Simulated assay, not measured.
Amino acid sequence: MAPTMFRIGGDPGVRRLGFGAMHLPTEPGPARETSRAVARRAVELGVTLIDTAYLYGGGANEELLAEALHPYPEGLLITTKVGIARSGPSDEWRLDGRPAVLRAQVEQALRRLRVERIELLQLHRIDPETPLADQLGTLRDLQTEGKIGRIGLSEVTVAELAQARGIIDVASVQNRYNLLDREHESVLAACEAAGIAFLPWRPAAWGESGAEAEIATVAAELGATPTQVALAWLLGHSPVILPIPGTARIDHLEENLAAEDLVLSLHHRDRLDRQAAPA
Rank of each mutant, 00 (worst) to 15 (best):
T4Y: 00
M5D: 15
R7T: 12
R16D: 11
R16N: 10
G20W: 05
M22F: 12
H23I: 12
H23E: 10
L24P: 02
E27W: 14
P30G: 07
A31M: 10
A31I: 11
A31K: 05
R32P: 00
T34M: 09
R36G: 14
A37S: 13
A39K: 07
A42T: 09
E44N: 06
V47A: 14
T48K: 00
I50D: 08
I50T: 08
A53K: 07
Y54K: 08
Y54H: 08
L55A: 11
G58E: 12
E62G: 10
E63V: 07
L65Q: 07
L65Y: 02
L65E: 09
A66P: 03
A66N: 09
P71W: 07
L76D: 06
I78R: 02
I78F: 01
T79N: 05
K81T: 12
K81Y: 10
V82C: 04
G83F: 04
G83W: 03
G83S: 04
A85T: 13
R86Q: 06
R86A: 04
S90A: 15
D91F: 14
D91G: 11
R94G: 11
R94T: 13
A100K: 14
L102V: 15
R103L: 10
Q105P: 01
Q105Y: 08
E107Q: 10
A109I: 15
L110V: 14
R111Q: 13
E119G: 07
L120T: 11
L123P: 00
H124P: 09
R125S: 12
D127L: 14
E129N: 13
P131F: 02
A133I: 15
D134Q: 10
D134E: 15
L139D: 04
R140C: 04
R140S: 14
T144V: 14
K147P: 01
K147Y: 01
G149H: 06
G149D: 12
V156M: 06
V156I: 15
T157C: 03
A159F: 05
A162W: 06
A164C: 05
G166I: 12
I167E: 04
I167H: 00
D169K: 09
N175I: 05
R176M: 13
R176S: 09
N178L: 13
L179T: 04
E183G: 11
E183N: 03
E183V: 15
H184N: 14
E185T: 14
S186C: 02
A190E: 11
C191A: 13
E192P: 02
A194F: 03
A194N: 09
I196V: 09
F198M: 14
L199H: 06
W201T: 09
P203V: 09
G207R: 06
E208A: 10
E212F: 00
L222C: 07
A224W: 04
T225E: 00
P226T: 07
T227W: 03
Q228R: 09
V229F: 01
W233Q: 01
L235Q: 05
G236K: 02
V240D: 10
I241M: 06
E254G: 00
E254R: 01
N256R: 00
N256E: 00
A259V: 06
E260T: 15
L264K: 03
S265R: 01
H268G: 11
R269T: 14
D270K: 08
D273P: 00
D273Q: 11
P278T: 10
P278A: 11
A279W: 07
